[in-house]
Design a protein around this nucleic acid. Sequence first.
RNA 1: GCGCUUGUAGCUCAGUUGGAUAGAGCGCAGCCCUGCGGAGGCUGAGGCCGUGGGUUCGAGCCCCGCCAAGCGCGCCA
Length: 544
Amino acid sequence: MLGQAVKSAQASGKLLSVTVPENTIERPQNPEHGDYATSLPLKLARVVGQPPLSIAREIVNFIPSSPELASVVAAPPGFINFKLSDKWLAGQVDDILTAGNKFGNIDIGKGSKVQVEFVSVNPTGPLHVGHGRGAVLGSCLSSVLAAAGYNVTREYYLNDTGNQIEAFKRSFFARYQQQFGREAEVPADGYHGAYLVDYAKEVAAREGKRFLEMPEPEALREIGKIGLDMVVSEIKTDLDRLGVSFDVWFSEQSLYDSGLARKVMAQLQKEGHLALKEGATWFISTALGEDKDNVVVRGDGSPTYFASDIAYHYNKFFERKFDRVINIWGADHQGHVSRMKAVIGALGIDSERLTVLICQMVSLKRGEETVRVSKRSGDIITLRELIDEVGADACRYFFAARSADSQMDFDLELAKEQSPENPVYYVQYGHARICSVLKHAKEKGISYEGGDVSLLVTAPELNLIRKMLLLPETVETAAKALEPHHMAYYALDLATVFHSFYDTTRVVTDDASLTKARLKLVAAGQVVLARTLHLMGMNAPESM
RNA sequence: GCGCUUGUAGCUCAGUUGGAUAGAGCGCAGCCCUGCGGAGGCUGAGGCCGUGGGUUCGAGCCCCGCCAAGCGCGCCA
């Protein structure tokens, strides 16, 4: 509409014909500036050579009146402010109720195939809190993208082969042997955590000493498999408690079993991206502008994880034909981003189609003491312990509320004592309160059927509607920027506006028609708040 | 040394492509319950947006330098 008006103005000769920058509609922070605003006249002023304010006035003249808009005014130094009409706002309540739990959906994705790969932790031990952050981030992002109209696949890449896995198997076998009094040491580069002792006890009790009687390579293979399954199962349990689920668990080993890894290596070889140096095979990334080359096949003939990563991404783009791939990695993998993009390019894929989101570290504090997160030291805080302490919803909220690229301190003491006063409960309480009102009305035999929303005219009512209408825009912002944390702030805002409305406005009164209208508003609020919570993977409790 | 990320209120953090008076939660100081859940509402104090330059009508946001913190720079993942 704004673009139309600018064109009309230019056509009429009142405004010089110049290239108009992308229309920029903003939401002013000061309510006196209306619901929407544009600074287009300020941007045009220089090229056009007219004062911004007069440009604004000219454009305003060419904006047709419409039922949505109460006013369109030019404001100094050169803004155009749009104010929505109360009547149109009130009418949106019916639309929200009609949309139901689809409210907030948009279609910027147009059904394109997006893969979000996240967590993908080596199955060598329990998840710690840092993994929880990646899990929540990936999970929320996936939900948001799905709401934005993308066809989303959530995927966990299971590194079930390679050096770390071999180290795990040797460690586990050692713990198993110790159960029967044998002298066996966990390798120095192995996994020393106490959980392996527990698993070993369990296996010893269940399977007896039969692994002691077979040749070591066979024992390692068999008991290793059992150990991996146990770890994976624990990981799944933890993720499940956090409300994080996956569509696909992709096995690294399968890349070798299917021969894909070899095939992709052959292709890179053929196209001159590989070279033999010092007995190993290298991917020549320096030729593509990288700082250094990288080994794909070691001197002993075994492939590095980089080799399987290459095959894995070949699979993502060529075999499964994802339009876009989003990987969520921890900050400790940040150095691999550019080489991964380089190799994607070498395979003939536009590297823009791969986005790697780096999720910064979580440091844990217990009061003054900072706990380093390391999987190999014995004493770590697991994700499970965190969930036990603060609950899944609080975990999700706190992780989801922080942007991925800022490091965060998670103070366990604080998280514990914070319980009833933290934003998680504030938001959820808003939902419970709404449910309570609806229940109260129901008990009195009042339904909102036939309610006339045009009776909604007060500031608290209209402000609540305004805030509800922001959900689709918030989804769009979060989806475009791949920043799910916007949802958390929106949730808090929405709850605030509702609580404020609730405090000033009684819903169920003697005025039958007004009661119906307000019940509609509250019911719409419930729809929007529940949807927001669900997009964040949180519960929307009816009572608490 | 090089690369990536971060530096905003006492604390934890937002700030959408550069826009109007920089925000929220917690904490702090006041105030508000004849009523649908007070796990609530309202008001206030608190800021050289790390620092020094630059770009322009306009910079927390863009560019360069510097300082500080985290992570990375393996034939580990």
